[in-house]
């Protein structure tokens, strides 16, 4: 099971990096979303995997690590805020410049 999750994290990160290397704003934002999926999962797995061990007192004696979960929970919400901010920046850039390239000058390398 660890291998499944690790490969998923690696794939999400790779897709995220590939998309952030694109030259238009929308794919870059999608790339950042993928990267936050990968990072959130990675942080979550820092607590190690456990099944049927939700950290709720009284339901289990060997709980999953609640601390990474708490950190990731707020990280998920914050990454929404970040996505929203760069999205409005992308829209503003598009509406003001007339194109949605991430670089100001032509970059077709």
């Amino acid at each position: 099971m660890e291998a499944l999750l690790a490969s998923a994290i690696g794939l999400l990160a790779a897709v995220g990096i590939y998309l952030t290397l694109r030259l238009r704003t929308f794919p870059v934002i999608l790339g950042l979303t993928f990267l936050s999926y990968a990072v959130n999962l990675f942080l979550f797995t820092a607590g190690r995997l456990a099944v049927n061990a939700a950290p709720i007192v009284g339901t289990t004696d060997a709980p999953a690590d609640p601390l990474p979960q708490a950190l990731v929970l707020t990280a998920i919400v914050i990454s929404f805020g970040m996505t929203a901010v760069i999205m409005i920046m992308a829209i503003g850039g598009h509406l003001q410049a007339g194109h949605d390239r991430i670089d100001l000058d032509e970059d077709k390398a």
Binding site: E2, L5, A6, I9, G10, A13, A14, V15, I17, A38
Partner: peptide, 22 residues
């Protein structure tokens, strides 16, 4: 080139995650 960079990074991150989890 971008795919290679992303792929290597993904392999590294996935490997790190696997090493950590095990």
């Amino acid at each position: 080139r971008d795919a290679a960079v992303a792929g290597m990074a993904g392999l590294g991150i996935g490997g790190l995650a696997y090493a950590m989890m095990t």
